[in-house]
Design a binder for these strands. Sequence first.
DNA 1: TCACATTTGTCCGTATGTATC
DNA 2: AGATACATACGGACAAATGTG
Lengths: 234, 234
Amino acid sequence: MVVKNKSFKPIKKNKRAFEVVALNIKESIFKGVWQPGERLPSENELSSQFGVSRHTIREALRTLELSGFLKIRTGVSGGPIVKDTIMTTISNLYLDAFQMENITVEEFTAARLAIEKVVINDAIDNATKEDIEKLKNNITKAKKLIANKEFATDANFEFHSLLACASKNKVFIILEKTINTINQKLRSLSSVNLEVTGEAVKMHEKLLDALIKKDREVVIQLLEAHLMTVGKSL
Amino acid sequence: MVVKNKSFKPIKKNKRAFEVVALNIKESIFKGVWQPGERLPSENELSSQFGVSRHTIREALRTLELSGFLKIRTGVSGGPIVKDTIMTTISNLYLDAFQMENITVEEFTAARLAIEKVVINDAIDNATKEDIEKLKNNITKAKKLIANKEFATDANFEFHSLLACASKNKVFIILEKTINTINQKLRSLSSVNLEVTGEAVKMHEKLLDALIKKDREVVIQLLEAHLMTVGKSL
DNA sequence: TCACATTTGTCCGTATGTATC
DNA sequence: AGATACATACGGACAAATGTG
């Protein structure tokens, strides 16, 4: 059979030096050569290792820093330190996209609802005893905070992360992380209300109950109501 | 009511020079001072305008380039050109995140199926006549390619993008773009098969038919079958 | 086709700020 | 408090790319 593939493959572009360096370092991190927390060689050392100037190294480090692969600390024993803050970078970009692309909170909430529906459905199927235990502990912790008239915001975010973990799909864990970070940022812009967080905890408790009973209909119903109120508060 | 909020607000950090420059430029773009397609002043000019060295300007431009706010072209009439490619940047970062977490094809396919189910459901509700028209054109184009014994890979990717557009939710458009990017990468690793792409086109056609008829059940059924075969081929 | 002007890409050298020991 | 080892920032120079006459 004669197959004509008219699509051109990307020609090896003349990549800029700093891009090559950045890609090299990035792939080393992927391979595990450098693990989070470890310190990369200093700019001068990288400069001589790669055989490029310090300026080029700096530009490479800039891009890696912005992508969330490393943080750069000044001072002795400072330098480029491997960090995994890609999720923060992504959520920051989402906020930029909200402005550039005119993404509305409504769109975000709708997408969030859709994703969390699926997540919780998978969680019902795949949650282990430990997952349920963790979720229960989260509720108790949050209730204690509320009873103490303290904010339970972090605990509430954690609840959704734990749900994602229970789904046993890492893609959802990552997406949930994005959602949480964006939420956190949006929340810091709007006025935080103690009653709202208290209501959220109650909702979470009901949700967990339904999840344990594997009552999908109620779970979805509760989730919709919950996320809609959250969306409105933003 | 006494409210104890134990969370500290971030202290105004001493920002680095290039960060200040980048923020300035970014906000100018947000305000519409520079619109997509326009060209920013050259590095030398920016250098004198901001009163910092060219090196600092370059680092600022690097970060903005990576974020997707501009592209930098060399040569006369080149320079920093305002672009709006944040969504592409987000997709690429997701790809990095997936690589960091060693996401499997199975996890990816499961998540993809879940997301596209929601997307197509929204598309049924919100697709305009133009959307339907574009989808139809896509099918005709793809069929023509297949009849000509050519690969219709790009057209097939486009089909899913068009679906996301029809959902009228920009968050989904971003997610779909991510999915496509990852798919493209996975596909480049596995052997591409002409028959597989041909089958995909047929599937898309059926899917579009059901979508026009607003037959949700059939749509979901077809989508599941379609994405599962795609997943297996990877 | 060729020469030229403009702009980014890369390099070297130097000085200063900063965190750690 | 001082020395040390980093990043940060500045200035100048030349190479490479690219559009124009």
